[in-house]
Design a protein around this nucleic acid. Sequence first.
DNA 1: GTAATGACCAGGC
DNA 2: AGCCTGGCCATTA
Length: 108
Amino acid sequence: MLDSSETRHQAILSTIAQIPKGYVSTYGEVASLAGYPGNARLVGRILKKLPSETKIPWHRVVNASGRSSFPDGSDKQREQFQKLQEEKIVILNGRIRLSNYKQHGNEC
DNA sequence: GTAATGACCAGGC
DNA sequence: AGCCTGGCCATTA
C-alpha cells in the first residue's frame, strides 16, 4: 500500500486524536502507534503545520524528555502548559509528568 | 538537481 | 543530573 504524505499525515493526526484526556504522549510514541516507528520528526513536522483551529490535542504531545518542544518562556510553550494544566496534568520545574496510558504510573 | 532545516530520539560523556 | 553527536525523513530554499 502506497502511503502518500497525506496518508501519513492522517495517520499521525488520528493517533494523536486518540490520546485520552488527562494523559500525554511523546513524539516517538505517537509515531510508533501511527505505524511509523523512528519517524518522530514527522509528528513534530505535522504539528507545526497544524492550524490554530485544529481539533488535534497537540498540547498532549511532548518530547521524550518530558519537556515542551518550544523554547523556554515562549508564548507557545505557555499555551501548551496552560492547556495541559486544564487537563489536570501537572508540570514541575518545567517538566511534564509523563502519565502515559501505558503505565499506571503513580508515585509521589 | 543539491543543501539546509526542523514542535525528535537514543546513545555516549 | 545535563550537554554533544549521529541518524532519520519530509519539507523548504
